[in-house]
Design a protein around this nucleic acid. Structure first.
Length: 735
RNA sequence: GCGCGCUUAGCUCAGUUGGUUAGAGCGACCCGUUUACACCGGGUAGGUCGGGAGUUCGAAUCUCUCAGCGCGCACCA
């Protein structure tokens, strides 16, 4: 008799069909699940929800994605089998800044540039580009076996998402939680946009450190080119060395471009031990200096323009790029006798754009800011009250530390690809209308509205804020927006969600924002548990990067060894929060395992014909013991699953199947079937083998869904389960 | 600078509340093709659990300390 088991398992032959069968069954939608088995029934009222972190829609999945899809799919399949209404909502992220950069490269290839392009046209081009690439991402998610409900898929630029995001902004504006302010921001001169702190990285840099005469003082700086406008000299109030100088004292000082009047400021922000203990400040281009200037009400002046060139205040250096100007300025200081010495071994950390690695130029800009303190308080309280749990636990501490030290969040971005900030400005204000002065006094010069407002007094048009939201402003609201907050019944049925599973690198960028927005808008936590997985690195444990050329394409591994092998290979031994070294060897081993399962199925098929599991025979003591051991195993493994220890559960079932079931139980069964003529012994043996095999398929299914489903289909003619509804996916988790 | 984590077999990592000879996968070596499977089976070797000190009847596990590595945050002009 020939069967599909006659040749080794070839995943390529089956995976696509199996996925189609699942998808067409409709069971990815928890509202369309088949009636529960008796064992599942008690759970059926409980929802189990995971919102998928939406992958960027601008290309294929990478290794990190395949890990999170596998983990979340395991969680979902496990709970679905247990009878819960398991909902996993997929999504696609427009990924504002990131996608715009990807598209800018496309433009560059065509010899074009986004600067000078009509905003609307650019937006439409990027939209078309994104929707095209979104398909690849979705196909990859399917190829990974994700049992998510595609009927509920959302895109971060869907109309309802945009509308609700803008409403959140309006509500926060009305509550005084967002404000427009001229504050120091991180400016990327290449990308021509501001960035939040989490979108920048520090890199250590070695620069000459210049000691320069400034009147009676010597100041030290690594950036002489910012010093043109420096007219405040700051000293620590307790510094004995400079006690003769008093706060507010004026001094005539010979400076780079001639004489200026300097003012002495005393401020405790000064580190007396650093440099000379004296510094001049440049409030427009340095965060600390800005704070000092704010505290003392000092003037601020822009020195460097938005493109990174010096402004007219720099005199003869105006129009020069910083790098070009610096040595020339130093030369001039030397000529004037102002340069005291140069320390060549000065190392400091410089903020850089996390995408282009260009140095960030701090600038003062009028932007929208979220007042973080009161919002952070909500998050801190919820986490301290254990309403939200972290896996691994130590991330709780990290989360709280960050929340307690958070600063106001700049949410304005000077990019096109994103959600428009629904703010409108009335500039200039209304002209005076005789007799209506008081009324006009109250005229708002800022309106928050999705539609274009008009001034009710002078009928002037408002000018729309050209900026878009920081992507994290909208993705921070993702969990409830996806479920259609506030009106969609899904919101009531499935929120708060159960688990937010994401990479530990998003502990600051994303997780806190979701907690805050959830608590602010829905008055509820967005999820009960945060599960953080580690990063997927190359075989040597090094971070994958295109420039290093060590990027492993997970979908190639999936094609080569099968998705099941890739999945379980990503899971076994991969503890939460710990980075994973992904190597081909690791996956290859599990391909062999898949084949082992395949061949065991062949043995079972050949040897247990005629056995019906629903008709349990009187078991021999030996077989009863195997079943008892199996039950203990189920209990142990289920407990690991409930405690999110997938790395252990996967390893245990692997081991049980291969080294207990295949190596021992099957081998013993062979002997007994061959040497014993007692029919009762044979039936008992066959029944036990089939029972253990069927149960193993169920236990393996969340980890290796394709092969287990395929075998289940092939064996279903044998009545492997009385409640068999032909899809292992909705079968009951063994108890 | 502050914080977090790691250091266990050649490599990648488990080891739950301290408890008998410390485990897995991959790799190495030896033997073996008796029909589920060579994408296999049987077996072997390989670890003073980073160093040191302490608590304990007992420590890979708890405490202290030293060293090395990784990561995060912040920052000194």
């Amino acid at each position: 008799m020939s069967s599909i088991f006659d040749k080794p398992y070839d995943p390529k032959e089956h995976e696509e069909n199996i996925y189609r069968t699942w998808e067409e069954s409709g069971f990815f939608d928890p509202d369309k699940l088949p009636p529960p088995t008796a064992g599942q029934a008690p759970n059926r009222k409980k929802p189990f929800t995971i919102i998928m972190p939406p992958p960027n829609a601008n290309g294929h999945l990478h290794a990190g994605h395949t890990l999170f899809i596998t983990l979340e799919d395991i969680m979902i399949r496990f709970e679905r089998m247990r009878g819960k209404k398991a909902l996993w909502v997929p999504g696609a992220d427009h990924a504002g800044f990131e996608t715009q950069i990807v598209y800018e490269r496309e433009l560059e290839k065509q010899g074009r540039s986004r600067f000078g392009m009509d905003h609307k046209k650019l937006y439409e081009e990027i939209l078309a580009f994104t929707l095209e690439n979104k398909k690849y991402m979705e196909a990859d998610v399917r190829a990974m076996g994700a049992s998510c409900d595609w009927s509920r898929e959302k895109f971060t630029l869907d109309e309802d998402i945009i509308r609700e995001t803008q409403r959140t902004f309006k509500q926060m504006f009305d509550d005084g939680l967002v404000y427009r302010g001229s504050r120091i921001i991180n400016w990327c001169p290449k990308h021509q946009t501001s960035l939040s702190d989490v979108e920048t990285e520090f890199s250590e840099q070695s620069d000459p450190f210049y000691f320069i005469k400034y009147g009676p003082f010597i100041i030290a700086t690594a950036r002489p080119e910012t010093k043109f406008g420096d007219k405040y000299v700051v000293i620590h109030p307790k510094d004995e060395r400079y006690k003769e100088y008093t706060d507010g004292q004026k001094l005539e000082v010979e400076w780079i471009n001639g004489k200026i009047t300097a003012t002495v400021i005393k401020d405790e922000a000064i580190d007396m031990a650093f440099g000379t203990g004296v510094m001049t400040i440049t409030p427009w281009h340095d965060a600390i200096d800005f704070e000092i200037a704010e505290r003392h009400g000092l003037e601020k002046e822009q020195i460097i323009d938005w493109r990174g060139k010096l402004l007219p205040i720099a005199g003869e250096f105006a129009g020069m790029k910083i790098k070009e100007a610096r040595p020339k300025i130093v030369e001039k200081l030397k000529e004037k006798g102002l340069l005291v010495k140069i320390d060549e071994n000065y190392k400091h950390n410089v903020r850089a754009c996390y995408k282009c690695e260009n140095t960030i130029e701090p600038q003062i800009k009028e932007q929208w800011f979220v007042k973080m303190k009161p919002l952070a308080k909500l998050a801190i309280d919820a986490v301290e009250a254990e309403k939200i749990k972290f896996i691994p636990e130590n991330y709780k501490k990290i989360f709280l530390y960050w929340m307690e030290n958070t600063i106001d969040w700049n949410i304005s971005r000077q990019i096109v690809w994103g959600i428009k900030i629904p703010a409108w400005f009335h500039k200039p204000k209304c002209a005076p209308i005789p007799g209506r002065e008081k009324e006009i006094e109250k005229c708002e010069n800022i309106k928050i509205s999705a539609d274009e407002p008009r001034c009710e007094h002078c009928n002037a048009k408002y000018i729309q804020d050209p900026d878009t939201f920081d992507t994290w402003f909208s993705s921070g609201q993702w969990p409830y927006l996806v479920l259609g907050y506030p009106d969609n019944p899904d919101f009531k049925a499935y929120f708060p969600t159960d688990i937010m599973e994401t990479g530990h690198d998003l502990i600051f960028r994303w997780v806190p924002r979701m907690v805050i927005f959830g608590l602010y808008r829905t008055k509820n936590i967005p999820f009960h548990t945060v599960y953080l997985h580690g990063l997927v690195n190359d075989a040597k444990g090094k971070k994958m990067s295109k420039s290093k050329g060590n990027v492993i394409n997970p979908l190639e591994l999936s094609k080569k060894y099968g998705t099941d092998a890739l999945r379980i290979g990503l899971i076994v031994g991969n503890t939460p929060g710990t980075d994973l070294a992904l190597s081909e060897d690791r996956i290859r081993g599990y391909k062999n395992f898949a084949n082992k399962i395949w061949n065991a199925a062949r043995f079972v098929l050949i040897n247990t014909g005629g056995i019906e599991l629903s008709k349990k025979p009187a078991l021999q003591a030996y077989d009863q013991q195997l079943i008892d051991e199996l039950n203990l195993f189920i209990k142990d493994m289920t407990s690991d699953m409930e405690n999110f220890k997938y790395y252990l559960a996967a390893e245990k079932i692997y081991h049980y199947f291969w080294h207990t079931f295949a190596d021992k139980i099957i081998e013993e069964a062979k002997n007994r079937l061959k040497t014993n003529n007692d029919e009762a012994v044979k039936i008992s043996t066959k029944w036990a083998v089939l029972e253990i095999f069927a149960t193993s398929l169920q236990l393996l299914h969340p980890f290796m869904p394709f092969i287990t489903e395929k075998i289940w289909q092939e064996l279903s003619g044998n009545d492997i389960r009385k409640a068999n509804r032909n899809l292992l996916m909705v079968e009951e988790w063994p108890q």
